[in-house]
């Protein structure tokens, strides 16, 4: 635990320095590729796809990470060194990349049915829109990494991710099984 924290802190500092010295958008974006993947495929399932993600959403997440409204051991440090114009530029850059297909399997019929019942009750498509493709400040979640979605939904439920009160309230009222079904189903779309 202690070692991992040290490693993370070191990585965070290194990334922050790199980000501060990077000049062009390509240089800045290259730093992101360390985790989010050089070709858009993240290096770990718990790291989200950001290629092809919505521009407004990416900007707001960077803004919230800088403000401290959303916390992440690596990203908080990186965002701290970004100006608003950097965030806007990065958000635009990644939103214009093609979405990365992670080739995740479709959910089985029982899981899909459970997830659809939850999604209907929570009116998920009211915000994430038809096909869960998102728009502007609402993220695309169709085809997002299952492990990341499970992690982030659980962070909403625990309050660890506190930059969207609505999602906190909404997701808290569903069971572990419901959340797992939603993650699997939407990841497989």
């Amino acid at each position: 635990m202690r070692i991992s924290s040290v490693v993370l802190t070191a990585a965070m500092v290194a990334f922050s320095i790199q980000m501060a010295t990077a000049q062009s958008i390509e240089e800045k974006a290259a730093i992101c590729a360390g985790c989010h993947g050089e070709n858009g495929k993240p290096v770990s399932p718990e790291i989200p796809v950001i290629w092809g993600q919505k521009e407004g959403y990416l900007y707001l997440q960077l803004r919230d990470l800088k403000r401290g409204d959303r916390k992440n051991e690596i990203m908080s440090g990186i965002a701290a060194g970004l100006e608003k114009s950097d965030m806007q530029e990065l958000a635009k850059y990644f939103s214009e990349k093609p979405w990365t297909n992670l080739q995740q399997k479709s959910a089985d019929a029982a899981t899909a049915s459970q997830a659809q019942t939850v999604a209907s009750s929570a009116q998920c498509e009211g915000c994430h829109l038809s096909g869960y493709l998102g728009d502007s400040t609402i993220p695309r979640i169709a085809g997002q990494s299952e492990a990341y979605m499970l992690k982030t939904m659980n962070e909403f439920r625990s309050g660890a991710r506190a930059n969207n009160a609505w999602m906190v309230t909404l997701l808290k009222s569903y069971s572990d099984s419901d959340i797992a079904a939603l993650s699997k189903y939407i990841a497989g779309l």
Partner: peptide
């Protein structure tokens, strides 16, 4: 109708809870 208090989130969805359809 569910209530859960949260501070003003600066331009994000702010319902102070949730209303959920009874499936």
């Amino acid at each position: 109708y569910h209530v859960e208090s949260s501070a003003y989130p600066a331009g994000k969805l702010w319902l102070g809870g949730a209303f959920k359809i009874i499936p």
